[in-house]
Design a protein around this nucleic acid. Structure first.
Length: 278
DNA sequence: CACTTGACCTGTCCGC
DNA sequence: TGCGGACAGGTCAAGT
């Protein structure tokens, strides 16, 4: 589920709530969801929360890092208990049947890792190992170094791949997933089926703008909640209210009123407007 | 090497 | 109402 904007929104929420907290206990309810010795995290303090692509990191003292990947259905929800009641209760009773790991802090607040499909994971590693885990990832599209030139160079490593499939390749660009790949192609006016080798300079420029624009809009609206995604406080995101094509098969294009088409590309559902995207 | 497909899981939705 | 099949935001490994 969560793509760059969703993980970024979770990161911003956690930064406000868990920096300086001390881990008291880690409760692993589903063993495949947690790799490493969870006991090592006990008594360690949260120093920093960060994101790289769709990975979420929590740096602890003692040179430890909790690395998260939410895959399709992962959730990271923080609940601070005041007067016996959670401060917010958007997500119902916690833990629930998809809760896989609970991190208890010394002040009795808790961080829940929920994941219906069990594809996601948490790894406890030494901070020095983080780079090794993330080294295959391409550039961060919302950072300053992400120029049209860098973008073009990266895409050209996959000349025979359809544009939308290339955007999903984390080695080329970090953090774009199925929703934002569809939206980026729409915003660029580019047919998602076109091969990379078919693009000209102008196309790269429009696509670059589309990728940055779609992701920025995603962050601005707090991410996309088709079914599972919630932020660190358990609240939904509203980007899909503003989406032009994703999940809008047969609905009318917001620009030209043509019904939105859905096809398969690289095995994934792909939405686009046959009129606006060429 | 470049690219495609299936597997990993659970739940929901849709047609019959 | 029940049942089977398709599909779901991601990423690997194995196949062509």
């Amino acid at each position: 589920m969560p793509e760059l904007p969703e993980v970024e929104t979770i990161k911003l929420g956690l930064e406000k709530s868990i920096i300086g907290q001390v881990v008291q206990e880690v409760d692993v309810l589903t063993s495949k969801s947690f790799q490493g010795d969870s006991q090592k995290a006990c008594s360690q303090k949260v120093l920093r929360v960060w994101r790289r692509a769709k990975n979420l990191g929590i740096d602890l003292s003692a040179d430890l890092t909790l690395l998260f990947h939410l895959k399709m259905t992962g959730q990271v929800i923080y609940q601070n208990v005041i007067g016996g009641h959670p401060t917010r209760d958007m997500t119902g009773q916690m833990p629930n049947k998809s809760t896989r790991v609970i991190i208890h802090f010394a002040d009795e607040s808790k961080l829940f890792f929920n994941d219906q499909r069990k594809f996601g994971w948490i790894k406890l590693i030494s901070s020095g190992e983080v780079e090794e885990h993330l080294k295959h990832l391409g550039p961060e599209p919302l950072e300053d170094g992400f120029t049209v030139e860098v973008f073009t160079q990266q895409l050209q490593r996959r000349p025979n791949t359809p544009v939308k499939v290339a955007l999903l390749d984390q080695q080329l660009i970090a953090g774009v997933g199925n929703i934002y790949a569809c939206e980026a192609c729409f915003q660029a006016g580019i047919d998602p089926k076109r091969k990379i080798s078919d693009l000209n300079t102008e196309d790269y420029k429009k696509l670059h703008k589309g990728v940055v624009g779609a992701l920025s809009s995603g962050v601005k609206h707090g991410g996309s909640s088709k079914s599972h995604y919630v932020n660190a406080a358990g609240e939904k995101g509203y980007f899909l209210d503003y989406a032009y094509v994703y999940n809008r098969q047969n609905d009318l294009c917001k620009i030209c009123q043509t019904p939105i088409s859905k096809i398969q590309l690289g095995g994934r559902g792909t939405y686009f407007c046959t009129q606006c995207q060429r």
